[in-house]
């Protein structure tokens, strides 16, 4: 099993529902977030282009965060989801330095926190909170090894890219373009 997410930049309006749904789902403290919205504008008025992306931990195939963790608190579970065992985390910050996406942060309680692909939901067959809430349905989730999963299907149909592929982490959040 290999969980992945695809995000349709053509449909996303940047409403940030994914951000707030994640916060209420996962008790993300105020002032922090596990996912966020980026807007890119290019051109000169009136010849303009804009891309909006909902971003989060890329649940990389090659995980520098897990590799650099000195205690094993950062680890990989079923489906390639990268998680942090809070009680094993000493808060050294190595994994934060190691992440090219800056997807991790220090929780005020001292441990490192990040997107979990809502493993508590997906393990029960539900979508992640962000996917389930998105009003534009621009987020697709599923198992890449299952060719009928929404994410496998959309990646076959559409052109896509990933963020910072040159960082060499094999990110598993795909952006449909």
């Amino acid at each position: 099993m290999r969980y992945a997410m695809a995000m349709d930049t053509k449909k996303c309006v940047g409403c940030s529902d994914c951000v707030v749904a994640c916060q209420t789902e996962n008790n993300v403290p105020h002032g922090f977030c596990r996912d966020w919205i980026v807007e890119n504008v290019d051109g000169t008025y009136p010849n303009l282009e804009m891309e909006i992306r909902s971003e989060r931990c890329n649940q990389c195939e090659d995980t520098p965060c897990v590799r650099t963790c000195p205690t094993g608190a950062s680890h990989i579970i079923e489906g390639g989801i990268v998680k942090v065992t809070h009680v094993e985390c000493i808060g050294c910050g190595a994994c934060i330095q190691a992440c090219p996406y800056d997807a991790r942060y220090f929780h005020p309680d001292g441990y490192v926190d990040k997107c979990t692909f809502c493993d508590h939901r997906v393990s029960k067959g539900q979508d992640t909170a962000c996917v389930a809430v998105c009003p534009t349905k621009c987020l697709y989730f599923g198992d890449l090894h299952d060719e009928n999963s929404p994410v496998s299907k959309i990646l076959r149909e559409r052109k896509w890219k990933v963020n910072a592929p040159e960082a060499g982490t094999k990110p598993q959040v795909y952006f449909l373009i």
Binding site: C15, D17, V20, A21, V133, P135
Partner: peptide, 12 residues
């Protein structure tokens, strides 16, 4: 259709 917008989700 089962999907709240950010304001509704943040209604708490």
């Amino acid at each position: 259709n089962g999907r709240f917008c950010p304001r509704g989700t943040g209604g708490v």
